[in-house]
Amino acid sequence: MKIPDLIADQLGPIVDEWVEFARTRVPLSHGFTHEELADHAKVLLQAIAADLRQTEDPDAKYDKSQGNAPGNSPDITRTARDHAAQRFRQGFPFDGLVSEFRALRASVSRRWARQIEQHPGRAHVEELTRLDEAMDQALSESASFYARKVDDSRNLLLGMLGHDLRTPLGVVQMSATTLLRTDTPDDAQTRAVARILTSSQRMAAMVKDILDFTQTTFGVTLPISPAPADMGVIARTIAAEITTVLPDARVEVSLEGDLGGRWDAGRIGQMISNLLANAAQHGDPSQPVHVRIRGDGDEVSVRVENKGTPISPEAQRTIFLPLRQAPAAQGELRAGSSGLGLGLYITREIAQAHGGSIEVASERDLTTFLVRLPRVRPAFAGRRPGPGA
């Protein structure tokens, strides 16, 4: 049996093995289905099998081995790039993507070795070499495309930061100039002071979000300083801040049970502020945002609900991943939001740093974000698995 025939004969088990390996490369909280993790495995294996069936002359073999055949096996190239794009959207780390191909190669090679162990020969070595070349091509195309996606995201983030900082900086400069021209403040100067305060708060939020994002993407857990705190007090304080900046917004807070625990009050406030800003930005402005805090046993939950257009199931899959959502337009910015599209990602990081979790549910006209936090942070909370975990 040749390798292409083996792939066709054992395609199902090979894909299943690919899926089980892929599960070890993402957190269990991602909850991907078998079909989502199988992704392009079947199509890629079929493209590799088709490539191996083709006859190659010596020159073509040499060019392929050196990577000098850019038009070689377009089906492998297209599928490998599609796979990289899908894994990027799913939040797979780069080393997880690379290790998938290593595992796939090993899966096919191991099965092939069992078939030929009784009668190995030169033809078998050449066939295995062609398999390695096809796998290398798929890996190279996939890794290169993934790296470009990362670069594009980084450039987008820097561009957004530069663009969005320019407006509040201009407001600060003009307002400061106005104040310098007179000694006694009038109504216009008071409004200028208010604009300075609002713009500086937005800039501070941008800087904080970008620093948090940079830190967590380097694999470092958000630093927290747990201390005795009351979740109800934090929630009411943040709700008051939001409604002060947005007088037309309505935030209704309900409290139930014992709401005491040990948390970083500043980070928890940031988390609730991000959730309220998200609800205010995307919810129906004619309906109130509900914040329901409930203490139950060793856990306190924070539930933020808003009416409005539901979030699609596909968007829910990536809603907590950084730079996967389009940033808000300038006119759509709400209190507590930096406008960089990092709020929900940082919210998840804050919850996980406290040993908690966050989930989203959205159907019909109701969207709910639910955060569950232990009253006391577990000793293992916030530890990030290594590349092979």
Score class of each variant (00 low, 15 high):
S286A: 14
G283D: 12
S99D: 14
S301A: 15
A22I: 02
P322F: 01
R78V: 12
M135I: 15
E363S: 15
Q66H: 13
R89T: 07
N306H: 14
L366C: 09
R110F: 06
H119E: 15
F101R: 06
T367R: 04
I358G: 02
A379E: 11
H30I: 00
V19I: 14
L165C: 11
A204Q: 15
A194I: 08
R383W: 00
Q189L: 09
A103Y: 11
L259W: 10
R317W: 02
M271P: 02
R317I: 05
H30N: 03
D9V: 12
G386H: 00
G388V: 00
Q66I: 05
F94E: 00
P288A: 06
T55I: 08
E349G: 00
R181C: 11
I242R: 04
D82T: 04
G283M: 11
L344E: 05
I196F: 10
G386W: 00
I242M: 05
A69I: 05
A192H: 01
Q118W: 10
Q201G: 10
P288L: 08
A205G: 11
L259S: 09
P27N: 08
F101C: 07
G71P: 03
A143E: 14
Q215D: 07
N306K: 11
G269E: 07
G121T: 02
H34Y: 04
E20I: 03
S200W: 08
Q270W: 12
I116Y: 10
G355N: 03
Q90I: 03
S142T: 13
R166W: 09
A227V: 12
R236F: 04
D187Y: 12
G162I: 02
L211Q: 06
R317A: 05
S312D: 12
E127I: 04
A265G: 07
D151S: 07
V245S: 06
Q66D: 05
R81I: 08
N278S: 13
Q46F: 05
P27Y: 06
Q46M: 09
V360Y: 04
K307Y: 13
R348K: 14
H163K: 10
N278I: 07
A103Q: 14
H83W: 09
K61R: 15
R383T: 00
Q10I: 01
